[in-house]
Amino acid sequence: MGILSWIVFGLIAGAIAKFILPGRDPGGIIVTILIGIVGGFLGGWIGSQVSGTGISGFNLMSFVWAIVGSLILLLIYRLIFHRSHA
């Protein structure tokens, strides 16, 4: 699957990750979009490592991996942000 596909998956996955983990995050929608895009790439890499084959195409598993990557990054982002201001 191409980079453009992971960016689109990431945009949607970032919004879903924010829905799953609601809360006040600095940066608003822009940070959520960026976390989603990078999370899509992270999810694609994790999915490739777990399955042993590349993640390809617009399918349910690719989308799930993009959401997983976005959730991981959102949690890391919140941990770093809360520690720096605690």
Rank of each mutant, 00 (worst) to 15 (best):
L71F: 05
I37K: 01
F58I: 15
F19K: 10
G14M: 03
V50L: 10
F9E: 00
G40N: 01
W45I: 11
I35G: 07
W45K: 09
S70N: 09
G14Q: 05
I30D: 11
S5Y: 05
G10E: 00
V31N: 14
S70R: 06
L79H: 09
A86G: 13
I80M: 07
K18T: 10
I76D: 06
G36N: 07
P26S: 12
A13L: 06
G10W: 02
V68N: 06
G69C: 06
I37D: 02
K18V: 07
F19A: 13
V31R: 10
W45T: 13
I29W: 15
G28P: 12
G39H: 03
F81Y: 13
F63N: 01
V68G: 05
R78Q: 11
V8A: 11
G10S: 07
F19G: 11
Y77G: 05
S84N: 14
M1F: 02
L4R: 08
S51D: 08
G44F: 03
I30R: 15
L74S: 13
A13K: 03
F58Y: 15
L4W: 10
K18S: 13
P22L: 03
S84P: 02
L42K: 01
I35H: 01
Q49L: 14
Q49E: 12
W65P: 04
G57A: 00
S5T: 11
I76G: 03
I12S: 01
L21E: 09
I55G: 04
S5R: 04
G40I: 07
G14N: 05
H82K: 15
I35A: 02
L74K: 13
V8K: 02
S56I: 04
G27N: 05
